[in-house]
Measured scan of single mutants.
Amino acid sequence: EETVVIALYDYQTNDPQELALRRNEEYCLLDSSEIHWWRVQDRNGHEGYVPSSYLVEKS
């Protein structure tokens, strides 16, 4: 079962390993094994790492 997370803030990045976030957008959580950086996928299928503190699990 996939976990959906919501971005609390915008996040901009130039790092190809990371993914930009848009506030209030939903993302699919792929990997939360790292404490500070979670791997997520956006609705267009793009994947990357984002700061975990910018996300909240959708209830």
Rank of each mutant, 00 (worst) to 15 (best):
D42F: 01
Y54T: 03
G48H: 02
N14Y: 09
S32H: 13
S53L: 06
D42Q: 03
V5I: 04
P51H: 04
L55F: 09
D10Q: 02
D15M: 10
H36D: 14
N24G: 14
V4K: 09
C28E: 10
P16A: 13
Q12W: 08
P16H: 12
V56D: 05
E34Q: 14
T3C: 04
Y54D: 02
S32W: 08
Y9V: 10
W38T: 05
D31I: 01
L8H: 06
E2W: 10
S33T: 12
E2C: 05
E25L: 05
V40T: 01
L21V: 12
V4T: 12
E47G: 07
D42W: 01
C28N: 11
E1W: 10
H46A: 12
Q12Y: 12
S33E: 08
N24E: 08
R43Y: 10
Y49T: 13
S59N: 04
P16W: 04
P16L: 07
R23M: 08
Y9S: 13
V5N: 02
S52M: 06
G48Y: 03
E18C: 08
S33W: 03
V56C: 06
A7C: 03
E47I: 09
R22L: 12
G45D: 04
G48W: 03
I6W: 04
N14Q: 15
V4Q: 06
L8K: 15
A7Q: 02
V4Y: 11
Y9K: 15
V40S: 02
A20L: 08
D10M: 01
S52E: 05
R22E: 14
S59G: 15
H36R: 11
R23W: 05
S59V: 06
Y9E: 13
T3F: 10
I35A: 13
Y54N: 04
L21T: 04
P51W: 02
E57K: 10
W37P: 01
L29F: 03
N24M: 10
D42G: 07
W37G: 08
R43T: 11
R23G: 05
E2L: 10
N14A: 10
E18V: 06
I6V: 12
R39F: 10
R23E: 10
H46D: 07
R43K: 12
V5E: 01
E34I: 07
Y9T: 12
L30M: 12
E34W: 07
E2F: 14
Q17C: 06
D10W: 00
E57I: 10
N24C: 15
N14G: 09
N14V: 12
S53Q: 10
G48V: 02
I35T: 14
I6F: 05
E47Q: 14
S53V: 06
N44S: 14
V40I: 07
H46P: 03
S33G: 10
R39C: 07
C28A: 15
D42E: 05
P16G: 08
